[in-house]
Design a binder for these strands. Structure first.
Lengths: 338, 338
DNA sequence: TTGGCAGGCGAAAACGTTTTCGATTATTAT
DNA sequence: ATAATAATCGAAAACGTTTTCGCCTGCCAA
């Protein structure tokens, strides 16, 4: 049971490999008759081109690499979904790697993708990534690169993001609009741009609406998860008794906080309003359902691949390409926690 | 800025390509002196073998394909996590495809993976998959194949599963042990083996403990999601007023049900106990926290890749390989909903 | 001297494709 | 008739690696 190759078909038909190859790709210098013959024989033998040979010859793998901090994460898995769907449509496959928020791993994975000769790389940076020489290298090798969600401003490449600052501003403003006077913020780690921007949006909203910014109302949720939310909420209850609103960097932290308040008999939103971020679909399932900002993960993945695709196409044709930054719309979702 | 190749190194050193290649791979018929020389030069030039050429020559891609019904899903994304981590350790990359529970897509994706010449394929079947000729073809081509979670008994290959029947039995028994007398079941679609097995476990547990099985207490949650849980719960409340326990096929459905009961003022677990399945981590975050069965996704992914790796290794050495079915342990998790 | 052997190296084939550049024939214009 | 043009085809190089097989040199034993 040997593999079917162009050679095989050529021999069967008594013509050259060249002609077979060209016939299958509809080159204009092959007669209709020969084309028909070749295609028939190819179909009969179930001919499938050997991608390894094609790759070698064309220097393309029709594969892109994707590096994200965490796979088990509603937002990122939505992005993955958007990416692989779009990629498949365009005939590309996606290799997924997880940096676990580690800079070292991220760097290693970039090397891995380069050595695998993917046609493009999409990445959402690890929180701990500050050195970006590994990404510079990608640019030097002229491998199309796209960053999404967690990006670095130091790299000139296409980007897909939301306007974290504006979204956080809107979220905080919503709390103010519903009557909150003293609003705390559960923020993320200090480094990531997202975390900074959401914090700045929060701060600006306060200042624009005559509420004084108080740094003692800002709590850091290092891992931005459920337990962080629990701990921050407990700490908050110890530190302050006059807080009537919280804006959290992520739904998970908000849910953690809500569970604390539920337990202690503090009513949400009567005693304290809570605003999440991301619109993780569980937010609508908890009691009370969580007001939040919708962060379009699936859409982001889709747009991101489309943009990368454009760049890969340009590169193939040796055209030059102008990187773009695409900002996606977020949406304020009002539910029962505010 | 040309690519560095073996030829390049050979020319620089005035030796043959053959010797360079062999030196880099520590062949015994190259002198230590030459090896050192070659390695030094290779490092200096940052030589990286061209995988396309290596693939073509060795007929291996060091890549495996993974097909799952849904990426945005706690259990499956955990499996992905386990797989890619383990794969990376062994020098393999993972291409992820999503069947969206569609048989047609699944079939197409298998073809895609075959034509990409992956070294192995891992799959969790779409619910609608009954025809398995596409999987037979994988076997015929002697591509190592592994099925996990949603498997087919008609295919002889390695499998990694949990004992759904036993786990469901234990879950139902737990409801019985805590005093439930009339226990409903929110089951999944009719076809999938999982769904059948969990149903059978539920039924058997009833019968073994002197409770009569009543088919009117079984509700079908076609998509096994949050809304299904809501609808089933509402229907249940219309149909029956004496039910004091529910075993749901998945946490999501359980959470949907809980939200209905919360709304209607029906107390969980005082009026009705609820038992989920999967131990989706949100289950511990809701009120009341959900008793459930822990389904080890990460572990399953890890074990699955390891097993596939063994088969790929055997295949490379042309040894024959005995497929194995590995059954992973589940764990009953008692929380506040029972 | 001859033979055998080991160590070190390289020529060349092979993997299967794509594409350039001629070559050959058939057709048309002059 | 000749020249120019169009239509078809194929030889061969190229992509970069791996691996088989044989060659050469030097050494030792008989």
């Amino acid at each position: 049971m040997k593999e079917v190759t162009l050679k095989q078909i050529a021999e069967n038909l008594g013509i050259s490999i060249t002609t077979v190859s060209k016939a299958l790709k509809d080159y204009p210098d092959v007669s209709k008759k020969t084309k028909a013959l070749v295609k028939k024989e190819a179909k009969k033998l179930h001919y499938k081109p050997n991608v390894f040979a094609v790759n070698l010859r064309t220097k393309e793998s029709k594969t892109v690499g994707l590096i994200i901090p965490e796979v088990v994460h509603h937002f990122f898995s939505s992005v993955i979904n958007g990416i692989i769907e779009q990629a498949e449509k365009k005939g590309y496959l996606v290799i997924i790697l997880q940096s676990n928020e580690s800079y070292k791993l991220e760097k290693k994975q970039i090397d891995l993708l380069i050595s695998k000769r993917v046609d493009g790389i999409m990445i959402s940076l690890a929180n701990k990534t500050v050195d970006i020489s590994h990404l510079k290298r990608v640019k030097e090798l002229e491998i199309p690169l796209l960053m999404f969600d967690k990006i670095s401003k130091m790299i000139d490449c296409s980007k897909v993001v939301i306007n974290d600052r504006e979204a956080a501003y809107a979220a905080t403003k919503h709390l103010i609009d519903t009557g909150c006077k003293r609003i705390a913020h559960f923020r993320g780690a200090l480094l990531p741009q997202n975390s900074i921007d959401r914090f700045l949006g929060y701060k600006k909203a306060l200042e624009d609406h005559g509420l004084k910014y108080d740094s003692s109302l800002v709590y850091i949720c290092e891992n931005v998860d459920y337990n962080d939310g629990i701990n921050a909420a407990k700490q908050l209850l110890e530190d302050h008794d006059d807080v009537d609103g919280i804006f959290t960097i992520t739904d998970l932290a908000a849910i953690g906080a809500i569970s604390v308040f539920n337990e202690k008999g503090i009513r949400v939103p009567d005693d304290i309003s809570i605003m999440g971020f991301s619109n993780w679909f569980v937010s609508s399932a908890i009691t009370p359902s969580l007001s939040t900002v919708d962060q379009p993960g699936y859409e982001m993945g889709k747009v991101a691949f489309k943009q990368l695709y454009k760049e890969m196409k340009a590169r193939r044709k040796h055209e030059d390409f102008e990187p773009r930054t695409i900002v996606l719309e977020t949406k304020l979702i009002k539910r029962n926690s505010t």
